[in-house]
Write a protein that binds this DNA or RNA. Structure first.
Lengths: 122, 122
DNA sequence: CAGTATCCTACACGATACTG
DNA sequence: CAGTATCGTGTAGGATACTG
C-alpha cells in the first residue's frame, strides 16, 4: 500500500540537534510521558490512561520519538495478547529529572501566578 | 476595522491552568525567550536577534503570553523612536532556572544521545 | 492489547505590509 | 524601533476504523 513511505517529516529537522531534542522532551505529550514513566515502567494503555486525552496515534508517535532519542526503552513480550512495557533509559532518567522539576515548579507556583485568575472561575 | 476582536484563542484553554502555563514556558519561543532574558533585560529587536529566526509576530505573541503569565515584565520608555525593555519578574527568574537547567542538560548530553547520529552529518 | 492507516481540521507559524 | 494586521501554509493532533 505504500511504495513511498510518508513518515511525517518534522520541520524542525533543520534546527540544531539540541533544539530538536529539547522540542521532543518539552512537547505536549513527551513531557507528560517522561513524567509518568519517571515513577515506574508502564504499558501503552496505562500510559494513555495516566496522561489522559492523548490519542493512540499521538502517544505512539511520541514514544517512538523518545525511543529514538534514547530516553525511552520499549520492551515487548511476545505473548498474546501483546504486552509492551515502556521505561526510561538512564538518559531518560536524566532529562525527566529536569522536566519534572519544571513541571513541579509550575504546579507549586500556579496559584501565585496572575494567570490563575483567568481560569480560577472553574 | 474590528468590532469583534479575533485574538487567536488557544485550544489548550480547556486544560488545567498549570498545563497551560507549562505549555507557554516550554513553547518553541517561550523557552528561548526565558533563557535569553535570564541573562539580562533585552529590547525587542535584541531578543529577536539572539533567539534567531523568530518572526516579529511570534515573538510579540510569546512575550505577551509570558507577560500575562507573570514571567516577563515589559517596560516602555516613552521616547521616539520607541524603546521597550523586557525583563524577567521574580516568577520569571524562578521558571527560567528550571528551563535553563533542562536546556543545559540537553546541550550537555546531546553528544551521547543516539539522536545526534541522525544529524551529525551536518 | 498495542498499535497502524487514513482522513480531516484547527491552529502554530512565517511572510509581508503597514503604523505610531 | 516596536510592534499590529492580514493572509497563506504545513503540520500537530484528533476521530475513526482496522490489524497481528
Amino acid at each position: 500500500m505504500s511504495i513511498e513511505k510518508k513518515i511525517e517529516p518534522n520541520v524542525m529537522d533543520k534546527m540544531c540537534p539540541s533544539r530538536v531534542v529539547l522540542n521532543h522532551v518539552t512537547s505536549r505529550w513527551g513531557l507528560l510521558a517522561l513524567i509518568a514513566l519517571k515513577e515506574q515502567p508502564l504499558r501503552f494503555s496505562e500510559l494513555r490512561r495516566i496522561i489522559g486525552n492523548v490519542s493512540e496515534k499521538m502517544l505512539s508517535q511520541t514514544l517512538k520519538t523518545l525511543e529514538k532519542d534514547g530516553f525511552v526503552h520499549r520492551q515487548s513480550f511476545d505473548v498474546m495478547p501483546p504486552h509492551v512495557e515502556y521505561s526510561l533509559t538512564s538518559h531518560g532518567q536524566g532529562v525527566s529529572l529536569h522536566v519534572k522539576a519544571l513541571a513541579t515548579w509550575v504546579e507549586t507556583n500556579i496559584e501565585s501566578l496572575p494567570f490563575a485568575d483567568a481560569t480560577s472561575a472553574q
